[in-house]
Amino acid sequence: MVREKKAKARKKISYSKWGYIFLIPFFATYLVFSFIPLVSTFYNSMFENYRSGLTQIGPNFVGFENYISIFQSDLLKYLGNTVILWIIGFIPQIFFSLILAVWFADFRMKLRGSTFFKTIIYLPNVIMAASFAMLFFALFSDDGPMNNLMIRMGLIDSPIRYLTTVWGTRGLVGFMNFMMWFGNTTILLMAAILGVDSALFEAAAIDGAKSIEIFTKITMPTIKPIFIYVLITSLIGGLQMFDVPQVLTNAKGTPDRTSMTLIMFLNNHLYSKNYGMAGALSVILFIITAALSLVVFFILTGAGKQKGESK
């Protein structure tokens, strides 16, 4: 008995240390490659540090001057572009995802081939965004296959020059984002709807509720946390938009920088080694995404709590 107790006590002490040991690789990596860079980014944002021709200016401490000059540059224009591009993709994305999720989750509909459809609509998500943009650039170019096809079908008389117009370019970027993400969103929302107690739907159906009533009064309120999760994570993803507009417009955000996103702006500063401005822009982006992340954090940990309670 005594020996057993001793063994137990020893076990408790000796095993918990392994928890810490197993955390070392993650935290060492995080510290070196994320935390130190984050601090250094904040630090850099306070210094004037750029190249003018061949001469290096700085680094000189300037306080918050970089922040002032970045707001005086086209920051707000690019923020607006980024949000517009995100919205163009997000509206059709959430619309189709909600409809498809409801259909996939509806047992009474008994849709055939739903696995097949889910596989196909998720496919664009695994495609390299840079190559997807290059593909669209080739397909939608002035004498490319899409114009050719539409002229032959008699839909248009002369080629549409998509990339020379503001809304043609933005529309293509939004369309690509829609295609890449609606499958993913559908699957997330479907899982959320399947998690709702099916007795609720049955009771509503027996009471003679219409599909639209079931959707607005039962489905939406119960999946609201996951809906908000999808919305916020999509917005965070949208703020990081880079590959598609970068490759589609050859890093220029044409026409007239109306499709230049925040990360493309950051990329330009990093590329030209204007570290002060790049730092200020990074910090602003960090603050926005950190605030949005907090919402996601509370949804994730809140959902976990509810689950624990119901057990």
């Binding site: 860079p37 250094s40 980014t41 990081q240 570290y275 990074s282 992340s293």
Partner: peptide
């Protein structure tokens, strides 16, 4: 530790790229 990792989950790599490159 668990909560901390979830908290940092959504922070994009782009915002630390400047510090990352200089490091």
């Amino acid at each position: 530790v668990y909560l901390f990792i979830i908290l940092i989950m959504m922070i994009p790599t782009q915002v630390t790229t400047l510090g990352f490159l200089s490091l």
